[in-house]
Nucleic acid binder design. Sequence first.
DNA 1: AAGTTCAGCAACCGCATGATC
DNA 2: GGATCATGCGGTTGCTGAACT
Length: 321
Amino acid sequence: MGRAPCCDKANVKKGPWSSEEDAKLKEFIGKYGTGGNWIALPQKAGLKRCGKSCRLRWLNYLRPNIRHGEYSDEEDRIICNLYASIGSRWSVIAAQLPGRTDNDIKNYWNTKLKKKLLTMPSYLQEKQTFFSSMSFQPPPPSYNISSHQILNNSSSCYNSFSTPNFMNVDNMSNSFFVHDDIHNNLTNLQSPTPLANNLMSNNSVDVVNDNCLSYLGFQDGHYGMCNSPMLMYGSTCSSSEGGNYNKDHEQKQKYQIKQEDYHITLDNQVVGDQVQSQSSMIKNHATLEEVKQLNLTSYLFHDDEENKTAHYKKGMCSNYY
DNA sequence: AAGTTCAGCAACCGCATGATC
DNA sequence: GGATCATGCGGTTGCTGAACT
């Protein structure tokens, strides 16, 4: 019945690891690997630690190719975009940043990145009025993006009109579903973030794939890597039921973003009152503000048309308004 | 110089999920 | 099929050193 207990909690050491312990663990794993059994590992390695603790120490600190220190702007963007799309799924975010650990990214977000976003210059905040004043149209009942398209820098990015399912937005239940292509599972990401809540409450969806880009006018399929999701504030990125792209072509025009000024086509219902009410709503959700601000920097740092397109193509700068 | 506050980060804790018996 | 445990994950805590008073 069941398995043996994980460890004798009374006889395990807690607290910071000594260099001797690090060396023992490193040496043991170097020689024998983890053996797929973290619980038995500390005893075998001569460590008075819980297997969980060993695993954490290895994954977050001792493992080869771990990167510590400064994060690049690109890493910031990836973290922000993914956070906005999937929330605090640090392990998923970490998977997109080689050498970074989920713990590291989590700490970085909580201690630095969030603050960095909140201390953006005021001119950026003024721009927020523009976004908070948008109103949106709901996407079609089924909109999907392949998890592989977002989570892997894979060539599947180029044929997504017929390859469904990463994020399925269910307007009726106000939920996101993530489809795991490998295991063929649907995971409910109900209200993953305040951002997602806000977006959904505005009948919008924050997703990325070729379809979105096609709405932006980049329909040639040469916009490069899809290794970071693109937030589409106020836009509707939709595919047709059953992946029939052409069916939605007419509807698409309604939402198409004007490339000339990088504005999203706005709904006519936007009036002063609505602007105010939505602005105050956003005030209550720092995360939304934060992420939007970060993405705004993409716009401001690359403000000529050529650069924007170039960055799109590189997958470097995924958010223009 | 001593005490206090703050920021950064490593490590722990508890929960969810899946595997095993 | 249910009980038990391993694993992985995200949230939280607490230690440490720097900055400030």
